[in-house]
């Protein structure tokens, strides 16, 4: 069993330029800077998360991603990351285009709404799922787009985006053979490594 961070770590080459969108307290970026000697920057707007990054010495820039990423040049990063945030932005499809414009490759993780428990919750209770992993009510959730593992795959196909590799993990961010066999049903978090 490997965690999502371990898997991403394996996919990242050392000494590259990394941009982490919505980096939060910078856990992944810190790990990559320490272990892969990447030149990394995080974007974040949460004051506490920003301060945590500054405390750890992780370069972090206060920038609202929904207002655009035009300040970053084409292909100016080797890798653009976004973990557990794509569902919170206004236009995920346009954001993915932007990420692939700025970065040669992207790694995106997101909560898979196709997980069997979400399906069961909606099917049996007739109400929007609230779980440990998506602990919000429909009216106060920052997650404004719900999509599944398959939805993301389909969007990549429509946009001619190459899926270099993918992984699927459970709520503890660990992978198992049964998740790998039916990711749309069993994964709580999907991880995609994509490029143009």
């Amino acid at each position: 069993m490997r965690s999502d961070l371990e898997m991403i770590d394996e996919w990242v080459q050392p000494n590259i330029r990394v941009l982490d969108l919505a980096c939060g307290p910078g856990e992944l970026l810190h790990h990559l800077i320490q272990n892969k000697q990447v030149k990394g920057y995080g974007l974040e707007i949460g004051p506490d998360d920003l301060n945590t990054c500054i405390e750890k010495g992780i370069p972090v820039l206060e920038q609202n991603i929904d207002e655009g990423l035009q300040n970053f040049d084409d292909q100016s990063f080797d890798l653009v990351l976004m973990t557990h945030a794509l569902q919170q932005f206004r236009r995920p499809d346009l954001l993915i285009d932007e990420m692939l414009r700025i970065g040669k490759e992207c790694i995106i993780t997101f909560p898979n709404f196709g997980h069997w428990r979400s399906r069961l919750h909606l099917a049996l209770k007739g109400r929007m799922p609230v779980s440990d992993f998506l602990p919000y009510n429909w009216y106060d959730t920052p997650n404004i787009h719900f999509f599944t593992f398959q939805d993301f795959e389909r969007l990549c196909r429509e946009k001619d985006i190459k899926i270099l590799r993918w992984a699927a993990v459970d709520g503890q961010l660990k992978d198992h053979w049964w998740i790998r066999s039916m990711p749309n049903l069993f994964s709580e978090t999907a991880i995609f490594h994509i490029s143009r």
Partner: peptide, 12 residues
């Protein structure tokens, strides 16, 4: 600074 690859943080 980002373009030049320098260590920078920014708060608005």
């Amino acid at each position: 600074l980002v373009k030049a690859g320098k260590q920078v943080s920014y708060a608005k």
